[in-house]
C-alpha cells in the first residue's frame, strides 16, 4: 500500500513553553511492498511521523496520503496495523483473545477469528501459550503476541515503532528474522522506526535518516543486499559497510547539519 507524505509539519504546543517544531516539512514516498527503516537521533520525531501515517495524530501542515486517501487523527487507513514500543496486550484477555481483538472489532464470526488467531500464534511460536494471560508471559513473548495481533488482520501497511528496543540481542535478532520471513510471505508495506542501525540494515530495503528536531531528511539510501537475508549476512563485509555508511549519516544527523 503506497504511502505519500508531503511537506508534513508537526508542532507540539504546551501551555508552559513555546511551541516545539518536531517535523519541519518532511516529504517521503514509499512504494507498495517496500520495507523502509526510519532512523535518527532519539527524540527526533521518527515516532511522530509514524503516528501521523497511522492516523493517531494530525499534521499541522502538509498531508499524509495512504493508498490514495488522506489520513487524519482518528481516521486511520484501512488495512493498517501498528506495533507499539511495548506490547500493550489487554491484561484481562488471554493471549488468544488478544490476538482475536482486531478481528472481533471488525465483526468477524467467532469460529473464524479463533482459527485465524491460532494460526498466527502458531506462526510466531506461541501456540502453547495461547490460553495464558499477559502477566504470565515474558516480555519477548508479549511482544511476539503483539506482533501476532498486528498481523492477524493481514495488513497491507505495517507500522513498527521501535518494537524490540527493550529486548536482549538474541531475542531481538530472532524477532527481526521472523518479521523478515513474514514480509517475504505477505509483501505488506513496512515502515520500521528503530535506533539500531544493524537492525535497519538487516531488515530494510531503504533507510531514511532524520535530523534532530525540527526534523528534516538528511539521507535516504537504498540498502542493496540480497533480498533473502539470513543470519550469516550479519557477518559479511557488505553488511558492515552499509552499517558504517548509516553511522556516518547519523553523525551528520546528530550535528543537526
Amino acid at each position: 500500500m503506497p504511502v505519500r507524505v508531503a511537506d508534513v509539519v508537526r508542532r507540539f504546543t504546551s501551555q508552559a513553553a513555546a511551541p516545539v517544531e518536531v517535523l519541519a516539512g518532511i516529504s517521503l514516498e514509499v512504494a507498495a511492498s517496500a520495507f523502509v527503516a526510519l532512523l535518527g537521533p532519539s527524540g527526533c520525531g521518527k515516532s511522530t511521523l509514524l503516528r501521523l501515517v497511522a492516523g493517531l495524530d494530525s499534521p499541522d501542515g502538509g498531508s499524509v496520503v495512504v493508498d490514495g486517501r488522506p489520513v487524519r487523527r482518528r481516521e486511520s487507513p484501512d488495512h493498517v496495523a501498528f506495533v507499539f514500543q511495548e506490547a500493550h496486550l489487554l491484561p484481562w484477555r488471554t493471549l488468544r483473545k488478544n490476538v482475536e481483538l482486531p478481528l472481533e472489532l471488525r465483526g468477524m464470526a467467532a469460529a473464524e477469528r479463533r482459527d485465524r488467531a491460532l494460526n498466527m500464534l502458531e506462526r510466531v511460536g506461541l501456540a502453547d501459550a495461547r490460553e495464558r494471560y499477559p502477566a504470565q508471559l515474558s516480555g519477548g513473548m508479549q511482544l511476539r503476541g503483539s506482533l501476532a495481533r498486528a498481523l492477524v488482520t493481514d495488513p497491507r501497511l505495517l507500522l513498527l515503532d521501535e518494537p524490540f528496543a527493550a529486548l536482549d540481542e538474541i531475542t531481538r535478532q530472532r524477532l527481526d528474522g521472523l518479521i523478515q520471513e513474514l514480509w517475504h510471505e505477505r509483501r505488506f508495506t513496512a515502515l520500521f522506526v528503530t535506533h539500531s542501525l544493524r537492525e535497519a540494515v538487516f531488515l530494510a530495503e531503504r533507510a531514511v535518516m532524520l535530523s534532530r528536531r525540527p526534523a528534516h531528511i538528511v539521507a535516504d539510501r537504498a540498502i542493496e543486499l540480497p533480498a533473502d537475508r539470513s543470519a550469516e549476512l550479519r557477518a559479511s563485509p557488505a553488511y558492515n559497510e552499509k552499517v558504517e555508511r548509516l553511522y556516518q549519516d547519523l553523525l551528520i544527523a546528530e550535528g543537526g547539519a
Binding site: 482518528r74 493498517v80 501498528f82 511495548e86 500493550h88 484481562w92 481483538l101 482486531p102 472481533e104 472489532l105
Partner: peptide, 25 residues
C-alpha cells in the same frame, strides 16, 4: 493511551470501546 489508540486503529465503535476496554480496564 496506546490501548485506546489500538481501538481507534481498528475503527472500534464507542460501545465496543466501553465494553471491551473502558469497563474491563
Amino acid at each position: 493511551q496506546p490501548q485506546v489508540e489500538l481501538f481507534w486503529l481498528y475503527g472500534a465503535r464507542p460501545w465496543a470501546v466501553l465494553w471491551k476496554l473502558k469497563l474491563p480496564g
